[in-house]
Design a protein around this nucleic acid. Sequence first.
DNA 1: ATTGAGCGA
Length: 90
Amino acid sequence: MNIFAAKLNYDTTDETLQAAFEEFGEVDSAKVIMDKFTGRSKGFGFVEMSNDAEARNAINALNDSELDGRTIVVKVAEPKGDRPQRRERY
DNA sequence: ATTGAGCGA
């Protein structure tokens, strides 16, 4: 399950995010989106959890909770885009 | 408001 976490502290990094979610289950991967030009956090990130039950549990527990002093919002991630940008061509 | 980046054959 893909999880979206917003309103993160700019100090929050992948490790911080992953550590927080790991309290509730197996984290497949965690990533805080960083601005590639400034290198600063964009204030939100994504966490992937292989176990849906744990994922939902983590969302409930972490949503509206505090991380690095910031009250964050955690929810199921929305798909990046609907229609395929590129079609596979072989 | 609060939805990314990367990349092989």
